[in-house]
Nucleic acid binder design. Structure first.
Length: 496
RNA sequence: GUGGCCAUAGUUUAACGGUAAAACUGCGGAUUGUGGAUCCGCUAUCGAGGGUUCAACUCCCUCUGGCCACCCCA
């Protein structure tokens, strides 16, 4: 009896306090509803309920903030890309993140995973079906056609750097908002173009200190591929009983993928399977040989991988992927905390770069028939490698150091400080300061945290004498300098 | 999209069925012209919601998010 009544009391107490807690929350929810309605969205209860109270909306799945500590990596990658691309004569181009959805469905292909389950598609306020770009090529092709770039001297070489969106399941080095370094070359059916693109990607990675190996294949013209597919599926059907369950399914869905099966039991059967190389037309075969010759000439290490096919529909002839050279990649990604999981296989690393030739796409999208070739390079994947390397070598990417801290003492000095800082900055001095702090001690503490080489100290006395103290933060040695000579003194010191 | 592991202060990690410990960082302070040392103080309703229980951070379910494998891709 007693227990029961206790329980009741507690429950009512609970609900009362809950109600109380909910009241301000209710207001928030009302506000939120208004906003959502104003935004032209449905009055979706779930949307409102999802974020209770004044709770901070969480970072969307698969999205990532780039913080100041990450920036050195981004900067390094971007600048390396810029240097390489410009050196090879590529022009920078940006296309919108948002495009008509059909641009992507028509180019990438309806049957592909990217379109079928990964693209962000929605109707905008005009009811236009729009899609957030899941890759660069389609947009680049659209721009090439709509700006009449076929009238420019060919080949037209373009590079881009930016974010893409794919509603994939996040994993290390795989995000829903991802960045790629992308290069395209329009208007030339020339093995040298294919090779040049590969060299750009290869050199980019090498400049970042990543040793790689290129995997090469040719999937021929679309006729070549049709013929081959008939042959391959025929072969696989006869050997059906020797294949694993996954492969059986793949025979109809994506027969080329069967060749890629990692299952040991399938290996012998697949080794005897017909290879696409044998089904290439003479022209395709010659073309491919030429590309390989160029790579030999340029000393780019590559391997042939007859099973390499690409997931996008528009490829023809040359296809390639670039992986980190396993012999130099030392230590796989840390597998800490793996409690019972036997850590299957050595873990096949994912491709850093993928690309190939797409001679039909420009024409298919309504442009003049224009051969083209390009590649995309995953920035986040490169970054995980750079991070790992930095950890291994314990040398962080050179930290923003150097610079000067400006400390002031007293109201009078404080007023002068602002002007002096401004002047120094105009002269290109990297300055830190804290005008909010009054104690010299606190300011020096800060100077120390900024790891500056020198601190300038301006106090009452100095203001009157027209001097300023330069303190060497490492040795602690100070010298008093005339304010007029400050600039030249600093220049002398920082240049050594 | 399928499966597995996980979720405690800004970060890294504890503990326990009875209302959270520590380290580092951050901020404030130890008689306001001098730093990187020491000491003191402050900072968590235990990812969100629900259930079991007299009582849950601790058990169960759902959701969200992270990681890993598959799928796919960069």
């Amino acid at each position: 009896m007693l227990k029961k009544s206790m329980k009741k009391i507690k429950k009512t107490v609970k609900s009362v306090s809950k109600k109380r807690a909910e009241e301000p929350a209710k207001k928030n929810i009302q506000e939120e509803k208004k906003l959502i309605l104003a935004a032209g969205l449905e009055d979706d209860e779930q949307l409102v309920v999802k974020g209770p109270k004044g709770k901070l909306p969480s970072l969307l799945r698969g999205m990532k903030d780039v913080l100041p500590k990450d920036w050195p990596y981004w900067k390094k990658i971007y600048h390396t890309a810029e240097n390489i691309a410009e050196a090879y004569g590529f022009g920078y181009m940006e296309t919108p993140v948002l495009e008509e959805a059909s641009l992507f469905t028509r180019s990438i292909g309806r049957g592909t995973d990217i379109i079928e389950k990964e693209m962000y598609v929605f109707d905008d306020r005009d009811g236009t079906r729009v899609g957030m770009r899941p890759e660069f090529t389609a947009g680049a092709v659209r721009a090439y056609i709509s700006h009449g770039m076929h009238t420019l001297p060919q080949p037209v070489k373009l590079w881009s750097f930016g974010q893409l969106f794919r509603h994939d399941r996040p994993q290390a080095g795989r995000y829903r908002q991802l960045h790629q370094f992308n290069c395209e070359s329009f208007g030339a059916h020339d093995p040298a173009v294919d090779a040049e693109l590969i060299v750009v990607a290869y050199n980019f990675l090498r400049d970042l200190g990543i040793e790689t190996i290129v995997q090469m294949n040719s999937i021929g013209t679309s006729e070549d591929r049709q013929n081959y597919l008939v042959e391959l599926t025929g072969y696989l059907r006869t050997k059906r009983s020797y294949l694993c369950e996954d492969c059986k399914k793949r025979i109809t869905r994506n027969p080329l993928r069967v060749l890629d099966c990692k299952n040991e039991s399938c290996r012998p059967t697949l080794e005897e399977a017909p290879q696409i190389v044998d089904w290439l037309s003479e022209a395709s075969k010659n073309y491919f040989m030429k590309v390989l010759e160029f790579l030999d000439e340029l000393e780019v290490p590559y391997t042939l991988k007859p099973t390499l096919v690409r997931g996008l529909d528009y490829y023809t002839e040359t296809v390639f992927e670039i992986y980190e050279d396993p012999s130099t990649s030392s230590g796989q990604a840390p597998s800490a905390g793996s409690t019972g999981s036997p850590q299957a296989g050595a873990g096949q690393q994912s491709a850093l770069c993928g690309g190939g030739r797409y001679d039909l796409l420009v024409g298919e999208l309504g442009g003049p028939p224009t051969p083209a070739c390009g590649f995309a390079l995953g920035v986040e994947r490169v970054m995980t490698i750079l991070r790992r390397k930095a950890e291994e070598n314990k040398d962080k990417i050179e930290k923003e150091s150097g610079g000067v801290f400006f400390a002031h003492l007293g109201e009078q000095a404080r007023r002068r400080t602002l002007k002096m800082i401004e002047d120094l900055r105009r002269d290109g001095v990297v300055l830190h300061h804290s005008l909010g702090k009054t104690a010299l001690k606190a300011q020096l503490e800060l100077a120390n945290k900024f790891a500056v080489a020198y601190t300038l100290i301006l106090g009452q006395k100095e203001v009157q004498d027209g001097t300023i103290i330069i303190r060497d933060m490492e040795s602690g040695i100070q010298e008093i300098v005339d304010q007029k000579k400050l600039k030249s003194e600093l220049e002398k010191k920082t240049k050594i």
